[in-house]
Simulated scan of single mutants.
Amino acid sequence: MTSDVGLRERKKRATRAALSDAAWSLMTERGIEAVTAEAVAAAVDVSPRTFRNYFASREEAILDGILQRAKTFVEALRARPAGEPVWDSFAHVLPDMIMGLLGERERDADAMARACAENPAMLAQQLAMLGRVERMIAEVIAERTGADVERDLAPLLLAAVPAITMRAVVTRWAGGAAGDALPDLVRMSIAQLRDGLPLGRAAPPT
């Protein structure tokens, strides 16, 4: 019985992943308006009803693959040595996370940015997804540091770093920052945030 349940769960996860991958591909290749339950289902060779059993909207389907990969990042963060500073943990796991989420696919980054700019539902779904991921990261940080995620601001503030970093480096990278590989941009960003951004300080008197 346990084996049968495990097999069913693996099949469900595989179907969910295939539907999300198909939705993402349709968005990047043809635009978000091409992402319909019928089109996604046809790409995976299932019924539109199956699509609706897994996802409440096309926006959820498009972003689900990113959400699942982000959960892998959260687990990688949890697996870092207990005594390691959070900033160092970010430097170790965040480059792989961002490469895993987008890879070296400028077209995909542009398509995502355009879809969020043009479609309020897509932007709302993206923000909701980021909120879920930040909460999971905050809980890991609280576990590692002994903080109270319900009362202390520090875990919540630190949990926002991955999303801030991803937005900044993808914007710069997609804009054609010469000579900067995506992982290097991530590490540079973490180092600047950890050390304190000099632009946030008062300018010296002249």
Rank of each mutant, 00 (worst) to 15 (best):
E139C: 10
A18D: 10
P48A: 06
A181E: 13
V46M: 07
R8I: 05
A202S: 12
G179H: 00
E38Q: 14
R8W: 09
A43Y: 00
R201D: 09
L123I: 10
A61N: 03
I98F: 04
S3L: 13
A181G: 07
T15Q: 11
E59H: 08
G146A: 02
A82Q: 10
G176T: 04
L7I: 05
L7S: 08
D96N: 15
V5R: 13
D88Q: 11
E134Y: 06
A203K: 13
R16M: 02
V140N: 07
G131A: 15
V74F: 09
P81R: 01
D110P: 09
A18M: 08
R52V: 07
M27F: 00
V133S: 03
Q126H: 12
S25F: 08
G176S: 08
R16H: 05
S3W: 14
A70P: 02
L102N: 13
G6V: 04
I66S: 11
L156F: 11
L197A: 10
V40C: 09
R58N: 09
P183Q: 05
P198L: 01
R172Y: 07
G146H: 02
A202C: 09
A91S: 08
L19Q: 01
R151K: 12
D64S: 09
Q125E: 15
D4P: 05
P162N: 07
I141P: 02
E33C: 10
A79P: 01
A56R: 12
D110I: 15
A22F: 04
D184L: 13
A128N: 15
I32A: 07
G146F: 04
D64R: 01
R135T: 14
A41Y: 04
A163V: 13
E29D: 15
A41H: 00
D195T: 08
T50R: 06
I32M: 10
L7R: 11
N53V: 13
L67M: 00
G100T: 12
E139H: 11
A42R: 06
Y54S: 02
K71F: 14
I98V: 14
S57P: 01
S25N: 15
A202H: 12
E150D: 14
L158H: 03
L123C: 09
I32C: 02
V186P: 01
G146K: 03
T171I: 07
R107D: 14
K12W: 14
M129T: 14
T28P: 04
